[in-house]
Design a protein around this nucleic acid. Structure first.
Lengths: 187, 187
DNA sequence: ACTTGCATGTAAGATGTTACATGATTAG
DNA sequence: CTAATCATGTAACATCTTACATGCAAGT
């Protein structure tokens, strides 16, 4: 249901093509909601049929033509009504934490190596968000800036807590776990 | 692909019924991975066909019979091989943060009310995790305790950062946003 | 010659959700 | 009498992912 609103959110204020949306989902908004291109094109078609967005063809020379999608008045009303609605708690799915559930059962050296890699990935993302946040903070105050600041701040806190978790987990595994003997069964 | 491993993870060390699994997914593991009961029963059937789990019927009196599922040696090997594998970064989907993207476009009073509700939900979950973490910390050291501590700690850090985000967001909306005049168009 | 960017889509399959379906026992 | 707990499933639908498919232009 929310892919719909993710797209409407991006379309507020300016028309975008499907191709543009793909890149937004890869970039900034990607932190908050993720989508692949077949999903995006299908959903745009659906939104158009519901008259929440309108499209017009832009003929280009030297590159393929594109369809630009804009929010209709109805689309905007629908979006803002949804935004004012309470959000349910998310049930997250995290492959790393699921693995960590069994980190007491594998060679702690391997576990620590995975934690180090994972920490690195999150530090990169953290640095990336910091760059974006600095740019946004410098922009003039408006609704778009407010939204971007709010989500980037969530991203920053989130990534920081991941990095801290990796450190905590590494030290736990160094303290309590000793390498299992070959062939030994742990429970 | 990971529902499979979520189930295998829970089955290490003790046999469980589908019904038991449902409750684990509602409780502790639910933070890390989520599943509904039709999914669980379907997946158990699949795992049985792949001989990663085995099942036996337990006849009960006074209550319905049940099927208990246990990890096979193959299932255990498959799980531990996967655990040692690097985890990709998760692309998260968070309805609250998606809404926050447009919080600069609605009445800031409404936005702050939603943030307060949301903060409350996360504080409750935080308190719940703290309780669990205390209980687990008191248990004797083994692989299960290590796994539980790791994931609970992630949950704690996570929930704390959500709560802090709510406070940050509330104060941002109090500082910058003034109530929109009726009918006014903001960008 | 090969890759990257621009730009759009379809098809098939895997996963996830919601509603339907049953039925005994125990507690309020 | 009503609701909750135990216990298992099916059916229909919605969503998401991966692979397939096309084609021009510009840069290396």
């Amino acid at each position: 249901m929310s892919l719909k609103y993710a797209i409407l959110t991006l379309l507020v204020g300016r028309p975008l093509s499907g191709y543009d949306l793909i890149h937004y989902f890869d970039g900034s908004v990607g932190f908050v909601w993720h989508a692949t291109h077949p999903q995006i094109y299908r959903e745009l078609e659906r939104l158009r049929r519901q008259r929440l967005v309108s499209s017009r063809l832009v003929v280009q020379h030297g590159r393929p033509n594109k369809r630009l999608f804009s929010l209709t008045a109805r689309g905007r009303r629908d979006l803002l009504a949804w935004v004012a609605t309470p959000a349910p708690l998310q049930t997250m799915k995290d492959g790393m934490l699921l693995r960590a559930f069994s980190y007491g059962r594998i060679d702690p050296k391997v576990a620590r190596a995975r934690l180090a890699e994972y920490r690195h990935l999150h530090e990169e993302r953290l640095a990336h968000y910091r760059g974006l946040a600095d740019a946004v903070a410098a922009a003039p105050t408006d609704a778009a800036r407010t939204g971007a600041l709010l989500t980037l701040q969530a991203g920053l806190l989130h990534e920081e807590s991941y990095v801290r978790w990796c450190d905590w987990a590494t030290s736990l595994l160094s303290r309590t776990a000793r390498p299992p003997r070959r062939g030994a069964r742990r429970r």
